[in-house]
Design a binder for these strands. Structure first.
Length: 263
DNA sequence: ACATTGACCTGAGAGC
DNA sequence: TGCTCTCAGGTCAATG
C-alpha cells in the first residue's frame, strides 16, 4: 500500500495521536527489520522520551525524538501504524510497539517485513546516503527540472516515475494514476514524450498526489475520475467507458486505458 | 543505462 | 471446508 500519500497520512496520524507523549516502553518484535541499529540501542533512545515532530520524504517517515535522533520507518508493501488503548486491538504483525505513559500504544505493523526501521541523526544525511531524489511534492521540484529529468533517460516512463533515485514517493499504483490522468501510455519511452506531455504529466503528478492525500489515501474516497478504484472492480475506464487493460510494464502490473493512453 | 528476473516475507483470494 | 496456486501498492542484486 504505502506510497507517498499513504505515508503522508501516517505522518499526520502519528502527529495527531502519538506526539508529545512519554514513551514508557519500546519493544522490537522483528530485529531482522532493523537497519544500522540494534534493538537495545533503539529501545534506549526511545524509552523515557517523546516523539516531537515528523517529516516525510518519499515513502520514508522520519520522527524526531526528544533525545535528538530520528526514528526512520519504511512501510514496504504492507506497513501501517495504529494507535490504540486496548491490548486486544494490537495488530497481528506488530514489529515495533511503543507504550505510552497515558496507557495508549503505537504499533508499527508490517506483515511481509519488506519495510525497515532505522535511526538517524539527521534525515538529510539519511536521504543523501539512500540517494533519494527530491520528494515528489517538494515545491522546489519545478516543471523545468522535471522535464530535464524525463528527457535525460531512455527508460520507460512508468519506470522513471517509480525510480526513487530520480523522484521519491511514487510507486506502482500512483504512477498508473498520473499517467492515466495525463493520457500517457505507461510503456512510452521517457525521451519520446513531447514537451506538452511532460508538462501535463507534471501537473497531474502533483494533482493526483494532493487529491489522494485529501482523500486520506483511501481509494473509496477518491474522485470518480480516478482509475485506481477500477483496478480491481469493474475494469472500466472512468473517462471513455472502454475496457481497462492489464499488462506487465517495468516489471510491475500496470492498469491503463488503451484508448485514452495511446503510445 | 536499462530491462528482466528472482529473492526477500507472509497472507488473501481465486479456483478446484 | 480445505487444499493449492497465484498474486500483492517495495526494493535490491544478479544477469543479459
Amino acid at each position: 500500500m504505502p506510497e507517498l500519500p499513504d505515508v503522508e497520512v501516517f505522518r499526520q496520524y502519528m502527529a495527531s495521536t502519538a506526539f508529545h507523549k512519554k514513551i514508557s516502553a519500546a519493544t522490537v518484535f522483528s530485529k531482522e527489520m532493523l537497519e544500522s541499529v540494534s534493538a537495545p540501542q533503539l529501545k534506549k533512545i526511545l524509552e523515557g522520551q517523546t516523539l516531537e515532530s515528523g517529516l516525510r520524504h518519499g515513502k520514508y517517515l522520519f520522527t524526531e525524538t526528544s533525545n535528538g535522533p530520528w526514528l526512520v520507518l519504511h512501510f514496504g508493501m504492507t506497513g501501517f501504524l495504529k494507535y490504540f488503548k486496548d491490548p486486544d486491538h494490537q495488530p497481528s504483525h506488530t514489529r515495533l510497539l511503543l507504550d505510552f505513559a497515558n496507557g495508549y500504544h503505537l504499533a508499527y505493523d508490517c506483515q511481509r517485513k519488506l519495510g525497515m526501521m532505522s535511526l538517524t541523526d539527521a534525515p538529510g544525511d539519511f536521504i543523501r546516503k539512500s540517494q533519494l531524489g527530491p520528494d515528489a511534492l517538494d515545491p522546489d521540484l519545478d516543471v523545468d527540472q522535471f522535464e530535464q529529468m524525463v528527457k535525460e533517460t531512455t527508460a520507460i516512463i512508468k519506470s522513471t516515475l517509480m525510480n526513487q533515485n530520480r523522484i521519491a514517493g511514487i510507486g506502482n499504483i500512483y504512477s498508473d494514476e498520473m499517467l492515466f490522468q495525463a493520457g500517457i501510455h505507461p510503456g512510452a519511452r521517457s525521451q519520446d514524450l513531447s514537451k506538452t506531455e511532460i508538462k501535463r504529466l507534471y501537473g497531474e503528478l502533483k494533482k493526483v498526489l494532493q487529491k489522494a492525500i485529501e482523500a486520506r489515501a483511501d481509494p473509496n474516497r477518491f474522485p470518480d475520475s480516478f482509475i485506481i478504484p477500477h483496478r480491481r472492480t469493474d475494469r472500466v475506464c472512468p473517462k471513455c467507458s472502454g475496457d481497462i487493460e492489464k499488462a506487465k510494464i517495468a516489471g510491475r502490473t500496470a492498469y491503463f486505458c488503451p484508448r485514452c493512453q495511446q503510445k
